[in-house]
């Protein structure tokens, strides 16, 4: 699959890309990642979830056979080249426990968190991409990126749990600017330097964090959790200086 910057942008325009993992793309280095290999660093692991509703018909999408040599179904045809690297999971069944069965939501919520949601439109715990990002995105400039093609930043299936979802980028331009705009450094360059501006911002954030602590001391438990969620960013940013992560 050929990925370049243009694909990334075109993808969000045409709705091909719903949620996008970290854009560590070897095309930013060279075709085979040799430029990165030359630096002696490992290619970082990336995780990508992709969601689109409707349009799939069970009989046209789900393979008839299990195991390696299934016959590619009509709707899986475009992915045939990746057949050997691909698993199709189907027939999942969500146990809703005592929660209501929310149309269009219980399945999504339970599949992504492992917990059947107690409220419509809300994840009851971290979504799987965030659980994985906690492990693989340490030190990355962006822990995760979400993009949506429906023009609505609320349409994000990425969440730390609770009423907030991590808002999705809805315009190709803003997604591009976030990734490659101010602050972007070509990770394959050998003369990489820490960005002094980021380091200065760290000092500002230290002061802001003290404000937060003061407020937190006077909060009820649920509001404390709210503030904690937003300021986990600080810990991440302090690590955000690593050269290999775009």
């Amino acid at each position: 699959m050929k990925l370049d910057r243009r694909f990334l942008l075109r993808g969000t325009c045409q709705g091909a890309l719903a949620v996008l993992g970290l854009p560590f793309l070897d095309c930013f280095l060279d075709n085979k990642g040799q430029a990165l290999a030359a630096t002696g660093k490992r290619i970082p692991t990336r995780f990508n979830t992709f969601f689109y509703g409707l349009g799939l018909t069970k009989s046209l999408w789900v393979p008839k056979a299990t195991g390696l040599n299934y016959e590619t179904t009509e709707q899986l045809k475009p992915l045939e080249a990746f057949k050997q690297k691909m698993n199709v999971f189907s027939g999942s069944r969500v146990m809703i426990d005592d929660n209501p069965n929310f149309q269009h939501w219980s399945g999504v919520g339970a599949s992504t968190t492992g917990i059947s949601p107690s409220k419509n439109g809300q994840f009851d715990s971290k979504t799987i991409d965030q659980t994985i990002a906690d492990v693989i995105s340490r030190g990355a400039r962006f822990k995760s990126i979400a993009a949506a093609c429906a023009g609505d930043p609320k349409q994000s299936y990425s969440s730390l749990g609770g009423p907030n979802n991590l808002p999705a980028e809805v315009s190709p331009l803003s997604l591009y600017t976030r990734l490659f705009g101010p602050g972007f450094q070509d990770p394959s360059r050998t003369d990489w330097k820490p960005n002094p501006e980021i380091m200065l911002q760290q000092s500002v954030l230290s002061v802001v964090a003290v404000d937060r602590k003061r407020v937190t001391q006077r909060l009820g438990v649920s509001d404390q959790a709210r503030l904690d969620q937003s300021f986990t960013v600080r810990a991440r940013r302090s690590l955000g200086l690593s050269p290999v992560h775009a």
Partner: peptide
């Protein structure tokens, strides 16, 4: 009164 600022949002507010 319920929503927080997510890490993504905080980046933008920053």
């Amino acid at each position: 009164a319920i929503l927080s600022v997510t890490p993504v949002g905080f980046d933008s507010y920053s």
